[in-house]
Deep mutational scan, measured.
Amino acid sequence: NITNLCPFDEVFNATRFASVYAWNRKRISNCVADYSVLYNFAPFFAFKCYGVSPTKLNDLCFTNVYADSFVIRGNEVSQIAPGQTGNIADYNYKLPDDFTGCVIAWNSNKLDSKVGGNYNYLYRLFRKSNLKPFERDISTEIYQAGNKPCNGVAGFNCYFPLRSYGFRPTYGVGHQPYRVVVLSFELLHAPATVCGPKKST
């Protein structure tokens, strides 16, 4: 009989979020998941679920829940969905086509923008091939755009693969920082350890 609540607040209220190319993952297990707390949290810009209804989450049990978190621009949030393409979905964070879970995003301009620009948040701009679902690539190898080998030196046709967002408070909404948490639900042939409040007695 599990009684402790799942530590969703640790994920959602973290002081610093990860850059999207180096997205953070927390495994959540052996706890009671009260999703209504999240669902009623006012400032969400997006709360979209795939393969599961957000209002039914509290009735369900899962083997594991993974909480992935990172920061992207407002106009990139739409790429955090199954079957998407674009710089983020291709080179930074890719969801599987059969994704079961929820994508939760909110504007973090007050936290993550600075006058003069916040350059701490990076994304991958160049990559030889697209990421596989949930693949994480933190390499900083110089990207070779031409035929000539770069030998690890940036220059003509040789690019550092990461780019900084440089968030400023005055940017338009599409270019403002958004914090994103992706909850993915794993249902294995194993005992369920993460259940909603109704199922955990």
Rank of each mutant, 00 (worst) to 15 (best):
R27L: 09
V180E: 00
T15W: 00
R124L: 04
I104D: 00
G146S: 12
K94A: 05
D59A: 08
N1G: 08
K114R: 13
N1I: 05
Q176F: 01
V11I: 15
V32N: 08
G83K: 12
A89P: 08
R27N: 13
K26D: 05
G86C: 01
S184L: 07
C6Y: 04
Y66F: 11
R168F: 10
T140H: 12
C31F: 05
S113E: 05
N40W: 06
F12D: 02
D90F: 04
S164Y: 08
R124C: 03
N24C: 05
W106Q: 03
D68I: 01
F70A: 02
F134K: 06
L122Q: 15
K132F: 07
D59V: 04
S113V: 06
Y159S: 14
I80R: 02
A145M: 12
P161G: 06
R25F: 02
T55S: 14
G117D: 10
Y35R: 05
Q79A: 04
K198E: 13
T85K: 14
F134I: 04
K110P: 08
G51I: 00
G101H: 00
L183K: 00
Q176E: 06
Y165F: 05
L188Y: 14
F41Y: 15
A46E: 15
L131M: 08
V11N: 02
V115T: 14
L183Q: 00
Y21V: 06
Y21C: 02
L187T: 15
K198V: 12
L111T: 13
K199I: 14
K199P: 13
P82I: 01
Q84K: 11
V194D: 12
Q79P: 01
N87K: 11
H175I: 08
C158S: 06
K56Q: 14
D90S: 09
G74C: 04
K128V: 08
V194F: 09
P191V: 07
R163V: 12
I138F: 07
V65M: 13
A190C: 08
K110E: 15
K110L: 09
N120K: 12
A154K: 15
D112G: 01
K114V: 12
D112C: 00
R127A: 06
P177H: 02
F41R: 09
K148H: 12
G172L: 10
T170C: 08
L187G: 14
P54F: 15
N92T: 01
P177Y: 04
D112L: 00
F45I: 10
D112T: 01
H175E: 15
T15A: 08
D34G: 02
F156I: 13
Y50W: 13
I138C: 12
F185W: 06
E76L: 01
P161M: 03
T201L: 13
K148Y: 11
A81N: 02
D137S: 02
D68F: 01
K56H: 11
P149T: 14
A145S: 12
R73F: 05
V153H: 14
L183S: 00
S36N: 14
N75G: 08
I2H: 13
D9L: 14
N87W: 10
P197K: 15
T63H: 09
T3E: 09
V77E: 04
R16Q: 13
N147P: 14
F185Y: 08
R73N: 11
I88F: 02
L131V: 10
Y91R: 05
L95D: 01
S129W: 07
F47S: 04
P7T: 10
F8I: 07
N40H: 12
Y21E: 04
K48D: 08
Y66M: 07
D97P: 10
A42G: 15
T3A: 07
N64D: 09
F45A: 15
L38V: 10
R124A: 04
P96S: 06
E141P: 09
T100C: 12
P96W: 00
K26E: 06
L187A: 15
T63W: 05
S200M: 14
R73I: 04
Y93E: 02
N157T: 09
L162S: 03
N24H: 11
N64C: 11
I28Q: 01
A42W: 05
A145G: 13
F156K: 15
Q84T: 10
I72M: 04
P177M: 05
R16Y: 11
A67Y: 04
N75M: 09
S53I: 08
P96E: 01
G116T: 12
P7H: 09
N107P: 08
L38A: 05
Y143D: 12
C195W: 08
N107C: 06
F185I: 05
A46C: 10
G166R: 12
Y91Q: 05
C150A: 06
F41L: 13
N40C: 05
N1T: 09
P133Y: 04
R73A: 14
N130V: 14
K198G: 15
D98A: 08
N118G: 10
R124Y: 03
S108E: 06
S108A: 11
S36F: 04
A33L: 12
S139W: 01
A105F: 06
D90C: 05
P133G: 07
Y35W: 15
N24A: 09
R168H: 14
L131I: 13
I72Y: 01
L125C: 13
C195M: 10
T63N: 12
E10V: 07
N87F: 13
S200I: 11
L122I: 11
I138V: 15
R179W: 02
A145E: 13
G166P: 06
N24T: 14
K94G: 01
G152Q: 12
R127M: 03
Y50C: 02
F8L: 12
F167T: 05
A46V: 15
A22P: 02
V103S: 00
V180R: 00
Y39M: 15
S113T: 10
P133W: 02
D137A: 03
F134V: 05
K56W: 02
F126A: 15
A67P: 00
V115G: 13
